[in-house]
Design a binder for these strands. Structure first.
Length: 223
DNA sequence: CACCAGGCAAGTA
DNA sequence: TACTTGCATGGT
C-alpha cells in the first residue's frame, strides 16, 4: 500500500476538485515569513487582519519593521492571537536575519535548505512547520510542509497514525512524490483546503470528501 | 456558554 | 524522554 502513484492520484483528485490554490497567500518573502509565524494555531482570517495592520503601518518592509518596538509590533499583530508571543517571535527572526545574514533575505536565500533548516529551527518561535513553510513558500526549496490538517486527513483515512512524528510524516511524503517544488507547494495547499472544507474537527463533512474511496483506508474513520 | 483555528516553548516528573 | 500547560484573538 502507498506506492508512489497513490499519492500522485490523491493530488490529481484534489487538484481536479479544487483547482490550483496559488499559495502562499502573500506576495513578498517577508510577508510570507511573517504570515508563517502569525498563522501558528490561528485562523487565517485573523492573520489577514494582523497583516493588514502591518501593511497600513508600513511594517511590511524590513527597515521599518526593525525599528518597531515590541509593544508596537504586538499591538499590530493582536488579531492573530498570542500577540505578545508572536511579536517576540518576529523580533527573534529579525535578530537572526541581522546577525546571520546581515539583515538580507537575498543573502539568506543563497544558503542551501540543508544548512538553513536547522538554523531556522534554532530561532525562538520557529518550529518544524514554520521553518518548512518559510523554506518552501518564501524560498522555493523542496520541503514538504506538514500541518494539523494534513495529519487529520491522513489519520481520518487510516493512512498514518494521528500522532506520527513530524519528521516521519514529512519523510513519508517526500519519499513518495517526485521532487517538485510546484507540486509540493500546491499539494500542501490542497490539504489545507480539504481540511477546511471537509475535515473539520467538529463536523467532518465526509459525504462530499473528494478522497472517499480513494485512500487505502477506505471511508474516513473517527478519531 | 464551549470549542476551534495552517504551533511552539517552557515547565514538570 | 514524555506529558502538561501557557499563550489569546475572533468566529461558530
Amino acid at each position: 500500500m502507498g506506492g508512489r502513484s497513490d499519492l500522485a492520484a490523491v493530488y490529481r483528485r484534489l487538484r481536479r476538485r479544487f483547482g490550483h490554490q496559488g499559495w502562499w497567500p502573500g506576495r513578498t518573502r517577508l510577508e510570507i515569513i511573517l504570515g508563517a509565524i502569525l498563522t501558528q494555531s490561528a485562523a487565517w482570517t485573523n492573520v489577514e487582519r494582523a497583516i493588514a495592520n502591518l501593511r497600513r503601518a508600513g511594517m511590511l518592509r524590513l527597515g521599518r519593521l526593525r525599528r518597531a518596538s515590541a509593544f508596537r509590533l504586538a499591538s499590530l499583530v493582536r488579531p492573530s492571537g498570542y500577540f505578545r508571543q508572536k511579536a517576540k517571535k518576529i523580533r527573534a527572526f529579525l535578530r537572526f536575519l541581522e546577525h546571520e545574514f546581515a539583515g538580507s533575505l537575498d543573502r539568506m536565500a543563497r544558503v542551501s535548505a540543508a544548512t538553513l533548516r536547522p538554523r531556522l529551527l534554532g530561532v525562538f518561535g520557529i518550529g518544524p512547520e514554520t521553518a518548512d513553510s518559510i523554506l518552501l513558500y518564501a524560498f522555493g526549496r523542496p520541503v514538504f510542509v506538514v500541518d494539523a490538517y494534513t495529519r487529520r486527513v491522513l489519520a481520518r483515512h487510516g493512512w498514518l497514525p494521528a500522532d506520527a512524528p513530524y519528521e516521519d510524516v514529512r519523510a513519508w511524503f517526500e519519499s513518495r512524490l517526485p521532487r517538485s517544488v510546484p507540486l509540493w507547494n500546491d499539494f500542501h495547499a490542497q490539504f489545507v483546503r480539504l481540511g477546511k472544507d471537509f475535515c473539520a474537527k467538529r463536523s467532518p463533512r465526509c459525504a462530499g470528501c473528494p478522497l472517499r474511496k480513494l485512500l487505502p483506508g477506505g471511508a474516513p474513520r473517527a478519531l
